[in-house]
Design a protein around this nucleic acid. Sequence first.
DNA 1: TATTAAATGATAATTGTTATCATTTAATAC
DNA 2: GTATTAAATGATAACAATTATCATTTAATA
Lengths: 147, 147
Amino acid sequence: MSDYKKRSEIIIRKLRQSGLKMTPQRLAIVNVLAKSEGHPSVEDIHARLKKEFPTMSLATVYRNIVLLKSLGEVLELGFPDGSNRYDGNRPFPHPHLICIKCKKILDPDLDSLEKMKKEVESETNFRILSHRLDFFGICSACLSEKV
Amino acid sequence: MSDYKKRSEIIIRKLRQSGLKMTPQRLAIVNVLAKSEGHPSVEDIHARLKKEFPTMSLATVYRNIVLLKSLGEVLELGFPDGSNRYDGNRPFPHPHLICIKCKKILDPDLDSLEKMKKEVESETNFRILSHRLDFFGICSACLSEKV
DNA sequence: TATTAAATGATAATTGTTATCATTTAATAC
DNA sequence: GTATTAAATGATAACAATTATCATTTAATA
Ligand SMILES: [Mn+2]
Ligand SMILES: [Mn+2]
Ligand SMILES: [Zn+2]
Ligand SMILES: [Zn+2]
């Protein structure tokens, strides 16, 4: 079974366990999130499903995102300009690499973050519960596009 | 001369060099930003100046924040829920420690971040230009308030 | 004091998200 | 298969932080 199929079955199992109805729209949204390698926006998801569900409302996408967040199965990357993006594969805080040109968002490997969290906790008297780390820059594809 | 006075004079010098008018409202906003130890919101700034300028418009605060950002003299900490905060003392990217209970925001000392940036740049082919790092948790004051 | 470009105050417009509500539908029992 | 019912959907209004607009005021300069 493919990775995305595994991931979407995990989410669907969680939905069933919560006693929620499995509508075609809901299943399609889950599949887009599980299949996506990137970090789609609500608009991306809605546009992707426009052919299969020509009458699907944006509100339905928003509602299902809220639901999946509450179940801990999707991570919201909120941005102050409202261009929010979603990670349905790694629904826990992790660093992101954001291209300011093409808006692509990648998941880099980074293991020094836990160390940093400990450093902060010992220097201050905070109890750290979560974090958000974004690196902004230009991706390799956009770098090589320079004329 | 106090630290905040030094900081506000730096900002005011930059404003004069840019050929901008020095209005009482503008000076007051700069002083609030330079004096603040924390990270005030637009509403905070507006409320702080309500007594001195009873007719000051929120738009004036927003306009001056936009101006100071464009001059590189204030750092905006934008949050997806619109509760934006401003740092007029360290107008460059740096980590923040955010109490989710009392909304206090602190500037921790952290020197391992540059290392992390280099790690990311060498592992990927991104050119990193900026970053944003927030730790969310409970501050010591709120921890000891537990009943 | 007169001139003028910039700043201000008041408020309308904008935009991503949430709320509302009538209609449809998935799940369950019979 | 049919009936029942609570949940989900689609359409759209409401919301709220920010930005734009515009008439009026004012800082800077001569
Ligand atoms: Mn991710
Ligand atoms: Mn700061
Ligand atoms: Zn790119
Ligand atoms: Zn606190």
